[in-house]
Nucleic acid binder design. Structure first.
Length: 551
RNA sequence: GCGCCGGUAGCUCAGUGGAUAGAGCGUCGGCCUCCGGAGCCGAAGGUCGCAGGUUCGAAUCCUGUCCGGCGCGCCA
């Protein structure tokens, strides 16, 4: 039970009582608006504010101010609320009870790592597929956003109480594997790399380290088959590299799925025949088509080419069936916005297969423009001009990069200045948050040396200073922050929250000396420091950012 | 041409119908006998791209328009 739901419910109860008592009359068939509740930016407006009266005005056909007064009159405050008031043009403002606030330190501290977790009522099963870069080269900075957006989203969903399967999809089936193999073969033969080949240094390195058995197999192969032999080997090498890079970033996956397995296990055939039975498949010009126009698409989509080879979309049809067969409530795809052309046909295919299209959610993140000394960095894998993700981590460090990506809405196109990211590293907000955590740890160390220990008994009377109260109010906001981020499938509330919490902790540190001659005060403040430390660590953990005990 | 995403402070970005539009960086000015100065306090800085509309109320919703990014394959 969060503070937010507590207060919302009390307002709804007040509304119902007001209606029963006749203080409010609602049109009989009118739907009641949901109670809006927010933390106002201006402290003069209290700790929580509701616009319920203004939202009720149309259905109650009364002035918002009068409705607000009626609501307040019938309001039975929960223990957390000290006072309510009405403000023009009809806001209901509530102030938390300071003693109640202060008394929350113990429970927050006792909850520890679990605080802010399991905050949703209905837990669901999510499949989150992200990164899924082709195994034709190392991950580059263009994959960074998808990796961190997906990772943090998974952390948030899991913290909120959902079950999450993290999945990576390898396209090991299409022509790019052959093109990669052809590039390796050409380099070994001293021939020019084909037009559609890959040119990075990593291709050269691979060409120089092909194992003997692969060479033998390639030389024994006929025609194009040699390209495939090299290609399959090279893409395995790249796949291992990708897995290692992601592991080094702290981005974990539960399932590594390959496109070829979707074909081999018959998911594509079964999916297509299901579509055919439903009347959404036809043949034309030797190709097999999905009737996407039946779902409002601009054009129908090819499933099998006239040469019989399946398209990428064919695998998507099989894959979405395979995912749903595992019993997920929602499938999340984290894609770069350049794939948005494929969104409609995937949703339409899911619908045609009999699935709820609302259970398929495709998150398109906008492109990042990487800039170095004012110049945009080109990142084409085929041209070989790119900065690898490993390079980026070595240069800037994982914590600032994670902060950078998780603190911006994924729909915003953003600039990432590599030089600036390094140069400003000491001014970076991520260090400010980590610093607050380290400082809290330091205070606790000092306390231990002096034989002082935290005690949350009696904080209700001792932690009434405005800075103490403000800090605790921020701690109380954490569960809502997690719940809201999970609900919105968006992560950037979390860094903002962490920063504000760090600021509140700094203000507390400035105003309230923890280690004092008064044992009771010291024990209470130590409990608050420990609670703040714990919540800072929880917030950083959600972002996959380290919480150092000293810096 | 059609579609998707953007346009908010000098820069990078928050703000998905509410009260005086916010933060970081940068700029300017203050604060170190005291638990960590990677800190604290204060200031300057914005016709929310533009024009209409919807309503008690619009950065937010609708329409149009301009600018930028990305798509519109029997590529993946």
């Amino acid at each position: 039970m969060s503070l937010r739901t507590d207060i919302s419910r009390a307002i709804a109860d007040a509304r119902d009582r007001a209606i029963r008592s006749g203080a409010l009359t609602i049109a009989p068939d009118a739907a009641l608006p949901t109670v809006g509740l927010e933390r106002p930016a201006n402290p003069d407006h209290g700790d929580w504010a509701s616009n319920a009266a203004m939202q009720l005005a149309p259905v109650a056909r009364a002035a918002p101010m009068r409705i607000a007064e009626a609501l307040l009159e019938h309001f039975e405050p929960p223990p957390s609320i000290a006072a309510g008031s009405v403000a023009a043009p009809g806001f209901l403002n509530f102030r938390l009870a300071p003693e109640w606030v202060a008394a929350q330190v113990g429970p927050i501290r006792d909850a520890g790592d679990a605080y802010g977790h399991h905050v949703v009522d209905g837990a669901e099963r999510f499949n989150v597929e992200f990164v899924s870069a082709n195994p034709t080269g190392p991950l580059h900075v263009g994959n960074a956003r998808g990796a961190f957006v997906g990772d943090v989203l998974c952390r948030v969903l899991a913290a909120a109480g959902h079950e999450v399967v993290r999945e990576y999809y390898f396209n090991d089936f299409g022509g790019q594997v052959k093109a990669l193999g052809a590039s390796v073969r050409a380099l070994r033969a001293g021939e020019p790399i084909p037009e559609d080949g890959y040119r990075g240094d990593y291709v050269r390195e691979m060409a120089e380290s092909v194992p003997a058995e692969v060479i033998d197999a390639a030389e024994a192969a006929e025609g194009d088959e040699a390209d495939w032999v090299y290609g399959r080997w090279a893409s395995e090498v790249q796949r291992r590299g990708i897995e290692a890079s992601l592991a080094a970033l702290g981005v974990a996956f539960d399932v590594w799925k390959t496109e070829s397995s979707i074909h081999d296990e018959g998911w594509v055939e079964r999916g297509v025949s299901k579509l055919r039975d439903a009347g959404y498949v036809y043949e034309d010009e030797g190709a097999t088509w999905f009737k996407a126009t039946a779902f409002g698409d601009d054009r129908d989509r090819v499933i099998y080419r006239s040469n019989g080879a399946p398209t990428y979309f064919a695998a998507d049809i099989g894959y979405v069936s395979e995912k749903f067969s595992r019993g997920f409530d929602e499938l999340i795809y984290v894609w770069g916005e350049n794939h948005h052309g494929a969104v409609a046909r995937l949703l339409h295919a899911a619908e045609a297969l009999g699935h709820d299209p609302d259970a398929v959610r495709i998150l398109l993140y906008s492109w990042v423009r990487f800039v170095r000394e004012g110049e945009a960095v080109s990142m084409s894998k085929r041209s070989g001009q790119f900065v690898t993700l490993d390079d980026l981590m070595a240069e800037v460090g994982a914590d600032p990069v994670r902060w950078f990506f998780s603190s911006r809405a994924f729909t915003s196109g953003i600039d990432f200045d590599l030089e600036l990211a390094k140069k400003q590293s000491n001014e970076n907000p991520v260090y400010y948050v980590q610093y607050a955590h380290a400082r809290a740890c330091s205070i606790l160390r000092h306390a231990a040396e002096q034989g002082l220990s935290a005690d949350a008994q009696g904080t209700g009377e001792l932690l009434l200073h405005p800075s103490e109260q403000e800090l605790i109010r921020h701690l109380l906001d954490f569960p809502d922050t997690v719940a809201q981020a999970a609900e919105r499938r968006e992560t950037h509330d979390v860094p903002r929250y962490a920063y504000e919490l760090a600021t509140a902790f700094s203000a507390f540190y400035r105003d309230a000396k923890v280690l004092t001659d008064d044992a009771g005060v010291s024990a209470a403040r130590l409990a608050l420091v420990d609670a703040a430390r714990s919540v800072l660590a929880n917030a950083l953990q959600l972002l996959g950012i380290s919480a150092p005990e000293s810096m």
